[in-house]
Structures are given as C-alpha cells and as structure tokens.
Amino acid sequence: MTLEILNADQKDALQEISNIAMGTAAAGLAKVLESFVRLSVPRITIVETSRIADRLAASLPPHREVSAVRQAFYGPVEGEVVVVFGEDGCNELADLLAHDGDAGAVKEELLLDVSNILIGACINGIAHQLATELSFSPPEILCTAVPLEQVFAGHQPTCEQALLIEIDFSMEARSFACHMLTFLAPDSFGELRSSLSRFLESI
C-alpha cells in the first residue's frame, strides 16, 4: 500500500493548475527565446524516490546521457526541482540559442536559464493559482553528460515520494523532452493539500 500524497481530486486540481501554468510558460518562453516554443500538457505522477531513475529511463531513449539542473524554492511550500535533459536535447538547445562565447559555459548557462524559466513558470504558476508567493534559490548544475542512474549519485533525496512533472518541450522543428522532478519537503505536503482544497472550493 502506498501512502498517497494527494487524493484524486487534489491531483486533478494540480494537473489543471499545471496546465494553465504551462500555457503561460510557453508564451513567455517564446517571447524570451525569440523562437516558437511548444510545451506539452504536463504529465503529473507521484513516484517513489527510489524508483525515479527507472521511471525516467522508461521515457528516455536507452543508453542516453543526461544533464540536470537543480533549484530550490521556499515560502509556504518548500522543495527542490530537478530538471533532467537528455544530452541530445541540451545540444539542440545550445545549437538553437547560443550566440557567442565559449561553448561549454554557454551550454551550461543555457541549461540554467531554460530550467530557471521552466521551473519559475511552473512553480510560480502553481503558487499563483494557489494564492501564495514563493522565492527561488539560484539554479545549479547538478551534473552534465552522465548516465541517468548517476544523476542522484551522492544526492539521496530525503523524502520518499516526489511529484514527477514531465513536459515535452519543442522549439522550431526540433523537439526534445525534459523532465521536471519536484521534491516537496515532507512538511509541505499538508500545505499543498490544503492549498489545493481551498482552490477546489473556490471554483
């Protein structure tokens, strides 16, 4: 028996709120990146943290290397988001967006920027719908070009469950998936549930 973070109604509400947030994010991203951007409807699932690598492996092509960015948010709800990009996706992104300078640093900076925008849009969007306000720490590179199972090597998540928000991200003719993993601090589950309940009552 798994302990569910959210009941079915709360999960639906979160899905709905995320959809709206992503719509806003896509519009904003398009303006900022000066490129046509499409974000899929996010797929929201709750996963056991011990099974995250398996879960991600299922949606990434086999034997693929990935890069990941982490960013913490805090306020009434606290947690950390990890965005995992397939290495090909990173290169595509760099191809499309890099303008100048040293390729390695530019690629990292782009990953940080795009993650920050995605995380900000998604988490802020959710917070906004839930009538609360959050702050963000600077994003950091968690790893670059490592096999998937090494993403969390030496960084064991402290919570048992995480919200997995998967978004397909396409720009111009190219498309690639990135995966947002939201780790909520266990203390924040209660606040998230009550925020979602308030939201459900208000509509």
Binding site: A25, V32, D113, N116, I117, G120, N124, S135, P139
Partner: peptide, 10 residues
C-alpha cells in the same frame, strides 16, 4: 525575460 515572465533570473 524577467519583465515578460515576472520571474527571478540568475
């Protein structure tokens, strides 16, 4: 980006 997205940047 900050103006359009109303979001922090770093």
């Amino acid at each position: 980006g900050v103006i359009v997205l109303k979001n922090f940047a770093f």
